[in-house]
Write a protein that binds this DNA or RNA. Structure first.
Length: 574
DNA sequence: GCCGTTTTCGGCCCGACTGTTTTCAGTCG
């Protein structure tokens, strides 16, 4: 059983407890436990098997540890079943509708007999909600609008899509005189792979002028609310944006607060509470005296912590690390010296070898690996042995004509169903760089898939496993494998794991990076560019690596060309 | 239900906005 499934059970218990109007702190406990389980870099099942004490984990006590045992044994827990018996099914779905929480969901069920989303919709359309005191016509409309957004998507967009919005919006905000400073906080600043909404903090000379300017932004579809502290709008593409106004002395506290994550904030507040202080979005206070607030650095310093990069703020050990001055020296875009995964017109790329090389050089790279597909990917006109040899000759010919860019002759070879490689190993051994990837048979059993990947890793001709889980965010689930075994094999054979920077891949994902690093594996960050503009995806890969606690020394393509040459010449395992 | 550098009992993160109130509950982030 996966951690996410266990977490879902705890969240459902919490939902049902909310509907039962149980003790709010008990509810919060279940939520925290769900959060801990969901964010864990390792599987609970494996931890239990190796005899680790679950109650050592944050927010997991004796009672929750017992429930985890029970869930792993039986697939569910008695507490959940008992609650489900007491409350009608469907009510938990109802309380996830925007505008509805546990109280209103229960109210609608008790007074109107509403138990499904469909019945809710009908009740709103018939104007029956206004029969209930405390609800009115406005609420009916708001619920209907919320229902409309539920159906359309998961409600979260890819980080890249949000980044495009931020770029346009940022240009607009920067061009306005009444706005002195603006920063995007939230999951966008933490570089989460998807973003639910945008939180934009504003320092304004004149708030009402700034508000007027914001409301004139052409991308706005609906104004959801506006007050003196906050303006909430919806942009096209159903992206919600909160603009919040802050004075300079509170700006750092606001940035900290709205960057989150929620669990990071709660963990910080626990520290604050011990000192009898108060931390909110306006500052750190002792009584009414402000101790800090203008910058994040001073806030963390007051708490005895190093500044924590936003990507680490997930309550996965970063606060402890900051207290011991052990925050890693996270990798940055400027550390990257080249790109080790790209395609050309030879297969499914859009541009020629020369064009790709020029673009890489224009970015200041020292090297680019050209890694077109192998023949199994027939839709991409994948290369067979003879076409690959010819392609490699062309790459080397162009390479010899260039002084300041090393073009590595490479390939992205398919890992076949049984773990063999799609091209003759003698031909692969001639190349400078071999990426091996799974592009088919995604639904094999965990045992078979593990064997498949490990066999490829053990081939002796592979330098790197491309997009290891082969998931597509929101569209295709990751393949199932015993990742600890895969990572261990990578370490043994000196095979790197790719962090694929394509916005809908971001694979290996962040918590697996952390886990693979602990297992001693190395990494590369690549764009898998199929066209010139894809080379610009590198920052998204960097974001994942930073969220995975990676430092420059963990990532092969931080090496300058000369050093990379030396490493690649060394025997495997180095 | 979790947690402990004043605690094994008694706390537990904090504020804004909306709608329908006429002092606040519910929801949201």
């Amino acid at each position: 059983m996966e951690n996410a499934q266990i977490a879902d059970i705890f969240d459902e218990v919490a939902d049902l407890l909310e509907l039962s109007e149980a003790d709010q702190f008990r509810i919060r406990s279940y939520r925290s436990a769900a959060q801990t389980v969901r964010g864990l870099p390792r599987r609970m099942e494996d931890m239990v098997r190796s005899g680790e004490r679950l109650s050592d984990l944050p927010h997991i006590g004796k009672s929750t540890a017992e429930k985890i045992d029970e869930i792993l044994r039986t697939g569910t827990c008695a507490r959940l079943k008992e609650l489900q018996k007491k409350l009608p099914a469907g009510l938990t779905a109802l309380m996830k509708v925007p505008q509805l929480g546990p109280r209103r969901a229960k109210l609608l069920y008790d007074k109107l007999g509403v138990r499904t989303i469909e019945e809710l919709k009908a009740a709103c359309e018939q104007g029956r909600l206004r029969e209930i005191p405390s609800l009115g016509a406005k609420t009916e409309q708001n619920i209907l609008r919320g229902l409309a957004t539920i159906g359309t998507s998961s409600g979260r967009m890819l980080l890249k899509a949000a980044a495009d919005h931020v770029e346009a919006l940022g240009r607009y905000l920067s061009g306005n005189k009444s706005i002195k400073r603006w920063e995007v906080a939230g999951s966008f600043r933490r570089r989460s792979e998807t973003v639910g909404d945008l939180d934009i903090l504003i320092e304004a000379g004149d708030r009402s002028a700034a508000t007027e300017a914001i409301l004139k932004y052409p991308g706005i579809e609906t104004v959801l609310s506006r007050g003196p502290e906050r303006v909430t709008v919806q942009l096209g593409g159903a992206l919600q944006v909160d603009f919040r106004f802050f004075e300079p002395e509170a700006f750092g506290a606001a940035l900290l607060y709205f960057t989150g994550s929620k669990s990071h904030n709660i963990a910080l507040r626990r520290l604050v509470q011990k000192r009898k202080w108060k931390l909110n979005e306006y500052g750190l206070f002792s009584g009414r005296r402000r101790l800090a607030g203008a910058s994040e650095e001073e806030l963390y310093r007051k708490l005895g912590l190093e500044w924590i990069p936003p990507e680490l703020r997930e309550d996965r050990g970063e606060i402890d690390a900051a207290a011991h001055k052990a925050i890693p020296d996270l990798i940055e875009l400027k550390d990257i010296c080249g790109d080790l995964h790209s395609h050309t017109k030879a297969t499914d790329g859009a541009h020629s070898l020369q064009e790709m090389a020029d673009a890489a050089r224009a970015r200041g790279y020292e090297y680019l690996a050209v890694t077109d597909h192998s023949k199994a990917v027939s839709v991409a006109k994948g290369l067979d042995e003879s076409r690959l040899k010819k392609h490699a000759r062309e790459i080397r010919k162009l390479n010899s004509s260039m002084k300041d860019l090393w073009l590595l002759a490479g390939v992205e070879v398919d890992i076949l169903k049984d773990g063999r490689l799609d091209l003759d190993e003698d031909v692969l051994a001639e190349l400078d760089w071999v990426v091996a990837s799974v592009h088919s048979h995604f639904d094999m059993s965990k045992t078979e898939m593990t064997r498949r990947l490990v066999r490829a890793i053990e081939s002796g001709v592979v330098h790197c496993i491309g997009h290891a889980s082969s998931r597509l965010i929101g569209r295709r689930s990751p393949i199932d494998a015993d990742w600890d075994e895969v990572f261990a094999a990578c370490r043994r054979h000196g095979v790197r794991l790719e962090i694929n920077a394509q916005p809908d891949r971001l694979d290996l994902r962040d918590n697996y990076c952390q886990r693979a690093k602990e297992a001693g594996a190395g990494f590369v960050i690549s764009t898998d560019a199929h066209k010139l503009s894809d080379l610009e995806f590198m920052p998204f890969g960097i974001g994942v690596a930073r969220r995975g606690w990676l430092e420059p020394r963990d990532v092969l393509n931080t090496l300058p060309a000369a050093e990379l040459r030396r490493v690649l010449k060394a025997p495997a395992g180095r």
